[in-house]
């Protein structure tokens, strides 16, 4: 049973009914792409493109989305798109952004605004592409970076990345008699991006499409660097059933594991309210095979950490001030 069915009221509150019918009809990410059944990342890309619209250039890190969308001689992309390598989506993006800027200035391309959007998976963003991301954001290029985080190297077969959650079993951090699986906590790149002084940072999830698309639109409107960290459910890597893709994203929010917020000019704001009483993390963990081995004690440990992180965020939501407010202090 879906969470929607468990709590129809919730659906009305969090999902603006009928709004889906109003969104961009054009599919910039065309059917025929080779993503797995129920791929949250492909869905997230599809939604992102709808929010971005036509005047966009995409740079893509090597990874699932690049592989499943660009089998020569075909492409799933209805937008200009370039893939160069694994670690450099952000630096390719900085080049695209600079190229578009100078060519427009010199009158060699039509005089209108085109947004550069660099995308990558969690491996291509938080690990191997981290330096390029940090450099591009610090330099202040006019570009949006979107990380589609499915919490492991899924393209190469579910190896652990810096974004893999604690206790998850992956093919390079397997659970076994002597191991809980992945022994590290997820690297929080959204927060690191906030500390780069970006005007706009947000977290998002395909399970909240309107929220995600609004954030993409907001980021698009900012003439400068912005970053969105989008949780993307991977049924293959998470060992969950394909139809529960959306539900798992919702559970991540409802358990406080992946809160949806935005940081606009330094000011934190929750964009999708979590339930007044957070769900137990076990509700999120149980349906996923990657956590199957965890004992109740271990789950309790995760619960504590999740609450701590959640409170840390809420503390910022409650006390952070925007740059303007800070200037006026």
């Amino acid at each position: 049973m879906s969470t929607a069915n468990l709590n129809p009221k919730k659906l009305f509150e969090n999902f603006e009914l009928y709004v889906p019918k109003l969104i961009e009809k054009m599919e910039y990410f065309s059917p025929g792409h080779r993503a797995c059944q129920g791929c949250g990342e492909a869905l997230a890309i599809r939604l992102m493109c709808k929010a971005l619209g036509k005047d966009t250039v995409i740079t893509n890190a090597t990874g699932c989305m690049e592989v499943i969308s660009s089998l020569y001689p075909t492409t799933a992309w209805n937008l200009p798109w370039i893939h160069v390598a694994f670690p450099n989506s952000a630096s390719v993006g900085s080049g695209v952004s600079a190229g578009l800027k100078v060519l427009r200035r010199k009158g060699r391309i039509p005089d209108r605004y085109v947004k550069t959007v660099s995308i990558g998976g969690d491996g291509g963003t938080v690990d191997i592409g981290f330096q390029a991301l940090s450099g591009a954001m610090e330099r202040g290029h006019d570009m949006l970076y979107v990380c589609f985080d499915n919490e492991a190297y899924m393209n190469t077969g579910i190896q652990r990345s810096g974004a893999t959650p604690f206790g998850s079993s992956t093919t390079t951090a397997p659970a076994g008699k002597a191991s809980i699986g992945n022994k590290t906590w997820k690297k929080n790149v959204a927060e690191i991006m906030v500390e780069h002084g970006l005007p706009y940072v947000a977290t998002a999830c395909h399970s909240y499409p309107i929220d995600f698309m609004n954030k993409v639109k907001k980021a698009r409107s900012i003439k400068g660097p912005s970053y969105i960290h989008c949780l993307a459910v991977c049924p293959t890597g998470w060992r969950s059933t394909s139809e529960t893709c959306i539900k798992l994203g919702r559970l991540a929010l409802e358990a406080g594991i992946f809160p949806l917020y935005e940081v606009e000019y330094g000011k934190y704001k929750i964009t999708v309210d979590p339930p007044e009483k957070l769900r137990p993390v076990a509700d999120y963990i149980k349906p996923q095979g990657r956590f199957r081995h965890l004992t109740p004690d271990q789950i309790r440990g995760i619960q504590e950490r999740v609450l701590m992180e959640y409170n840390k965020l809420m503390n910022k939501v409650n006390h952070s001030k925007s740059w303007d407010e800070l200037k006026a202090l």
């Binding site: 025929g32 792409h33 075909t74 992309w77």
Partner: peptide, 18 residues
Amino acid sequence: VNPGCMVFRPGSASEYHT
């Protein structure tokens, strides 16, 4: 083969039926 394996038919992945 196109120079650089460039693809000039946007959305052509739809030729493949998943």
